[in-house]
Design a protein around this nucleic acid. Structure first.
Lengths: 268, 268
DNA sequence: CGGATTATTGAGCCAATTCAACATCGGTGG
DNA sequence: CCACCGATGTTGAATTGGCTCAATAATCCG
């Protein structure tokens, strides 16, 4: 499904402006293979081939982390845009996980070569330590997002979930407007439904209701804009997520002089 | 709320048999303060005082990681028993997180002293590297559990959720019976509801239905037993979680000679 | 333009909730 | 020891939010 690779080994410099930057730097001297990939909408990269063996850094576009059940049901665990980092992992009970492109996506894949372990098992050095710290940050960040989404699915009703989704998208990929925000969302209603634990028709109905209440405009099938964000967030029983979460352990891990790259936000 | 501390500084040896063992060892030489705490049912330890500044290792009993919404709704993110490790963190949108004792609980709290950072920012050494690797493992493991639970809340119906809960409890704290498993569950119906995104009455009704279908027996209000586990899991569209998940990055992190302690399972 | 995909809308249904009454359990004090 | 009380659990009736099924509309793309 995935298209073509730009490079096969780690020698390609992917440039500080792309990739997770500090993560890329931390990867030097380790036995990771780095390759760029271009995905078209619908293309998948499976988690199956060894959980936690690959890391993907989204450079452009948007992907979804998906988990599938044996009976075909799908749950989307999260959407990632430029600058976000995903770690392949076991998705628990479900019968397999993958990432799936929501739009044309360019990403950087880092794969741990299992046949070349020497540089990894050696004595501690800054390179290795940086790498582990980066991995910690990636996973820690995702855990916080995942926990937040658990609350969403467990305790918010359908309207609250949809509003939260819109607000989240607006803050992540929205462009400022004369007043308010304009957002191009690459995913379908079905994707949104699979993310929010609802179904397609419900998403559609709630969009219609929001449109009628003038809280959100939907000028095209895959765009929306919000003029009064405060009015929208006012409908939520939660404070909206800020993309940077700085805990003290994360601070501590960053004290080697680096800072966390994960969500510096590479402009798409 | 929390009762009394056994010790206030890190000099107390808490014994290899308790705590997260390798985690405790990894903590040596770092500026973490270690203290034991005893909690009674309902006691809480807040996440507020600095996300990701504390780590709790459950020694005995059971706790729940909780997230609260501003309107009072509560979501339980997970239950932890002896051997499990929790890291204080931001729970995203929600208005605060905490861990809460489901039964009399003994745990070991590791707190990063922010005023004593020298040993942490120094050059890489094995102690520091081990510590980061342990923290990675803790967070990674929780991320996998969290992802799995996301699928549960997003795509399983109430009966499936309840069965999954029972099977999970059985595998974690069940005692083998002549045939089948016997489980003492310390939490109330409300706790279970808050974990599964349902309400108290629904839990009760499903328990009654399972009892009538002879799949599960409930000899007392807070115990149950399953004689035919296969019949029970057959109702699920998922394969049940195994407590150990071994990804290659985790393997790689463990190649210094340690193994992951997180879920070795200290007998309660 | 034509066909496939995606989105919207309506009607009816069902799962899970709400509200209310009652039962059971555990603990406390007389 | 028993009576009482609050907390927890169960059950029923009525309601409703979100789903299923189905028809239609809009959009995309060759």
């Amino acid at each position: 499904m995935a298209n073509y690779d730009f490079s096969i080994d780690g020698n390609l410099e992917c440039g500080e402006a792309m990739c997770g930057r500090r993560l890329c730097r931390a990867m030097r001297g380790t036995s990771f293979v780095r390759r760029h990939k271009v995905l078209r909408r619908g293309d998948r990269l499976d988690f199956t081939s060894g959980a936690c063996r690959k890391v993907w850094i989204i450079i452009r576009g948007m992907t979804a982390i998906c988990a599938g059940l044996s009976d075909g049901r799908r749950q989307i665990l999260g959407f990632e845009t430029a600058g976000d980092v995903v770690c392949a992992m076991s998705t628990g009970q479900s019968s397999g996980g993958w990432i799936e492109a929501m739009s044309e996506t360019v990403l950087c894949e880092l794969e741990l070569r299992s046949d070349q372990t020497a540089p990894l098992s050696g004595p501690a050095d800054h390179g290795r330590q940086n790498l582990i710290a980066e991995l910690f940050n990636i996973v820690h960040q995702r855990l916080e997002l995942c926990s937040a989404h658990l609350v969403t699915l467990g305790r918010l009703d359908s309207t609250e979930r949809v509003i939260l989704f819109l607000v989240d998208m607006a803050s992540r990929i929205g462009r400022p407007l004369a007043e308010g925000v304009f957002v191009e969302m690459p995913m379908t209603r079905e994707d949104i439904a699979d993310y929010l634990g609802l179904n397609t028709e419900t998403i559609s109905r709630i969009f219609t209701r929001l449109k009628k209440s003038k809280l959100v405009q939907f000028p095209a099938r895959n765009t929306f804009s919000v003029t009064n964000m405060t009015a929208l967030t006012g409908r939520l029983p939660v404070t909206v997520r800020q993309t940077s979460s700085s805990g003290q352990i994360r601070d501590f891990l960053n004290r080697t002089g680096r800072t966390v790259a994960v969500n510096d936000g590479v402009p798409a």
